[in-house]
Design a protein around this nucleic acid. Structure first.
Length: 466
RNA sequence: GGCCGGAUAGCAAAGCGGUUAUGCAGGGGCCUGCAAAGCCUUACAGACCAGUUCGACUCUGGUUCCGGCCUCCA
């Protein structure tokens, strides 16, 4: 039984899809005016884990993740770069897809763009105006009248009067209420714009998600997700727009991924303390970053540091070391996976609001069994190794070749290393330890300087990166 | 100021009203020419103060500290 924490009700709830055959999930994606940072990576990775797990339970899962490719920051950046907005956004969309590939993230089923949803946005705004929930200001902008939606603030636990009390004084005074938010903005000269029934302009930020989720998943769907910072006002506004326009419940479950922190403080573009995914990829591979993200629960804060990434790397090294050199088993893997209940327990861990730390701990338990069986029953070890890889596949790790993982990032070529090892083993055979190249640290060991660790096996010497 | 979270061993991070989380690092041992890897074993927890309970890291109340949202943000 899958349980998911629902931000809306502040508790874990049993997940019952509206249509038992098909689960619909909408996740707020990126605004593409810059490279994705590690905070974005966390949302991308976690919803990838969530989607993978949902697919194991339900025959059909429709995962929609949008791209915001029109907004103030994009326009500003395009002007600064003297670049067309589409050339800018396409560049960063491509970069995002590259980053996702490196992190082992499967593409969403549908990746709609705001600029591709203009007609649906018109339709929704029109419907809100008809119902007198939205209005046009003197300057032509269309606003949503927050006081007309009785449940406003329910998701984020805000109260309209309290919000009103703490509001900042705005320059814009044509709004009926300072809390009203924009649905359609009139274009300023030289800004990208679309012709609308209300004049030339562009959509406000919140309306696109209401329009796109409705188009692809319908008025009422199962899961809506995003980063926790989107809960207010973005998701609150989405609920107001969608439920106001459609007279229907919007999403059943709201899922929010916690922040990535730097020195226990939020990482964000606004604070300018962020690390881009591609920047981190220069020092750590994508799987290590993915492991680091999965090593804490998705709702907890996650502190970004090299130490934590090193931990993740060491953990993955242990898992890959366990499966290294194992081959396909003669023993029936299904029979073995029934005899050992790791897959069942992994499923149970993920069923409990996607508890990835528990899921990972199970991989280590299994790795230990593999290591023990290796010396006793190699065929069983092979089968368990297969099982370990299979469990890894459920959360998107352990799918590269173990040797490849354990040897990557070393500057010497395989031939150079093999030659050194041959020389060394010749000397070892003659017990000529002290004059041998590449001995141990205490004998003037130098492979570590090349980032290499040697391992003298019974039949051969192997190596891996340090 | 209003509304939310959090505080777990050297580091990271979970579950759980009583029983080993897990990974890295540490101690002892096995294995090894020396190592590495692996295995066995071991130490080190639950911010603070009360309360509930036969029993609390786990529940309740309070205190302190930290973070987030209330404005664009994943």
């Amino acid at each position: 039984m899958l349980k998911i924490y629902n931000t809306f009700n502040k508790q874990k709830e049993e997940f019952q899809p509206i249509n038992p055959e098909k689960v619909g999930m909408y996740v707020c994606g990126m605004t593409v005016y810059d490279y994705c940072h590690i905070g974005h990576a966390r949302v991308l990775v976690m919803f990838d884990v969530i989607t993978r797990h949902l697919r194991r339970h339900f025959t059909q899962v429709e995962y929609v993740r949008n791209i915001t490719d029109i907004d103030d920051k994009i326009i500003k950046r395009a002007v600064k770069n003297k670049e067309d907005i589409y050339s800018l956004t396409n560049r960063f969309i491509d970069a995002m897809h590259e980053d996702e590939l490196a992190l082992g993230i499967l593409p969403p089923d549908i990746e709609p763009r705001a600029t591709g949803a203009i007609d649906q946005i018109f339709y929704m705004i029109e419907s809100l105006i008809e119902k007198d929930i939205a209005y046009q200001c003197k300057n032509g902008d269309i606003y949503y009248s927050v006081r007309k939606f009785k449940n406003y603030g329910k998701l984020s636990g805000k109260n309209l009067d309290e919000l009103e009390a703490g509001i900042r004084i705005e320059v814009e005074t044509s709004k009926q209420d300072p809390l009203d938010f924009v649905l359609w903005k009139m274009a300023k000269p030289n800004e990208p714009s679309w012709q609308s029934p209300w004049g030339n302009g562009r959509p406000g930020w919140h309306i696109e998600c209401s329009a796109m989720s409705c188009t692809h998943l319908g008025k009422h769907f199962d899961i809506h997700g995003g980063g926790i910072d989107l809960a207010f006002p973005h998701h609150e506004n989405e609920i107001a727009q969608s439920e106001g326009a459609n007279n229907s419940t919007f999403a059943n479950i709201w899922m929010h991924v916690g922040f990535v922190n730097i020195n226990n403080e939020k990482m964000s573009k606004s604070l300018n303390n962020f690390f881009t995914i591609r920047g981190v990829l220069e020092n750590y591979n994508g799987e290590t970053i993915r492991y680091f993200i999965m090593s804490s629960h998705y709702r907890s804060p996650l502190n970004f540091s090299n130490e934590n990434l090193d931990n993740a790397k060491a953990s993955l090294t242990r898992l890959y070391t366990a499966i290294r050199g194992l081959s396909a088993s003669k023993a029936a893997t299904t029979e073995v996976s029934q005899r050992f209940d790791y897959e069942e327990r992994l499923t149970a861990a993920l069923d409990d609001d996607f508890n990835t730390p528990i899921a990972l701990s199970l991989l280590f338990e299994l790795a230990k069994v593999v290591n023990v069986e290796r010396k006793k029953d190699i065929d069983l070890a092979n089968a368990l190794g297969q099982l370990l890889k299979k469990l890894g596949s459920h959360i998107g790790i352990l799918q590269t070749n173990a040797d490849e993982f354990l040897k990557q990032g070393v500057s010497l070529s395989n031939i150079q290393i093999d030659n050194k090892i041959k020389q060394r083993n010749k000397a070892r055979k003659n017990k000529n330890f002290c004059t041998t190249p590449w001995l141990t640290e205490r004998h003037g060991y130098d492979p570590t300087k090349a980032g290499i660790v040697l391992e003298d096996g019974i039949s051969a010497t192997t190596w891996r990166r340090k």
